[in-house]
Computed example of a mutant assay.
Amino acid sequence: MNEMTKITTTLKDWETDQEVRWCPGCGDYAILKAVQRTLPELGADPSNTVFVSGIGCSSRFPYYIESYGFHTIHGRAPAFATGIKLANPELDVWLITGDGDGMSIGGNHTMHVIRRNLNTQIMLFNNEIYGLTKGQFSPTSRVGTSSPSTPMGSVDRPALPCAFALGAGGRFVARAYDVSKNLPAVLKAAHAHKGAAFVEIFQNCIVYNKDRFDDFVAKGNADANQLWLENGEPMLFNKGTQGIALDQETLTLKVVDVADGDWQAADVIVHDVTNRSVAHMLVEMPFGPFPMALGVIYDDPRPTYEESLLGQDAKAREGKVADLSKLLAKGQTWTVGE
């Protein structure tokens, strides 16, 4: 496949004339602006870019990006994205989904687009609720979530999207949140990855699940409760006074104090984005005793689905001449008269 031809655009070039219809204060606004700021920095071309979505609040996204787009059916955006990419591998395909669209009715499709390793950026907006259909609990809602469908509190154990992506064989897994200044950097890393790049974005639903993520997003909580990962750098948080280390006896992660900035003495782990075992532990760290792991958690490319499939097709056609008439006449044939 050829590398994307970069062009010069501005944020305005990616804005449409459509009225943005999300609830005032919705986190989707911040994500939209982050994407519209990032695309010019990537050198992306609107005429070569496709946004594909399913159903849900997040899935209105294609209307607001000045590029090609498909607003498809519930949970099936990965199938459409796969067809688009196979039909024209040079297109830059972004897949937009939510915790309900991508983890419930679309869980099967999400699993397979990740497993196949289609070269696409998958942005899963996670607000831990069904916002479009008036606030029912979703696959990622926490135990005890009160909603119209769980008035006494949800008893379901929530799905972990990043753990799901790793379990499906994902080669790029990252996390961020809607108003984070680091979100564009995460999106750039996802775009640079050749293959299925899965990004979970925590998104505030102002109406049905307001401030759900304040325990690690709100001012005053962020420093102590966010672990921003950077390849080759120690896993430090809380202004460098704490870090993540490996307990050699139990082979599990633990929080350690860091004295005088000496993280090596505290055995703090240096982040390696190709370490799949540690990635699994990071995405499953229980929040509370641990901070929320954010940034690029895992990044280890392998050949993409379209490269393998189209390469196989090209090999099958070597030395052959397309002849439709010969194909139709092959084997037993007959003619139907009047």
Rank of each mutant, 00 (worst) to 15 (best):
T16E: 04
W14R: 10
L32S: 12
K6N: 01
E41C: 02
Q18D: 10
I31F: 11
V35H: 08
P24S: 10
C23A: 14
L11C: 05
Q18Y: 15
Q36M: 04
P40F: 08
P40M: 08
C23R: 04
P46I: 10
E19N: 15
L11F: 06
K33I: 11
V20W: 15
W22L: 11
T16W: 03
K6H: 02
P40W: 10
V20P: 08
V20A: 15
D13L: 03
E19C: 09
W14N: 02
L32Y: 12
Q36Y: 01
T5R: 01
T16Y: 03
C23L: 08
I31E: 15
C26Y: 07
C26F: 08
D28K: 08
A44R: 03
E19H: 14
G27W: 10
K6E: 02
T5V: 11
I7F: 07
T9I: 04
G25R: 04
L42N: 00
T8V: 12
S47I: 00
K33G: 05
Q18F: 14
P46R: 07
L42A: 01
T38D: 00
V20E: 14
G27Y: 12
E19G: 12
L32H: 12
G25P: 14
P40Y: 08
Q18T: 11
L39M: 06
E41A: 04
I31A: 15
Y29H: 15
S47W: 00
Q18G: 02
V35C: 14
A30I: 00
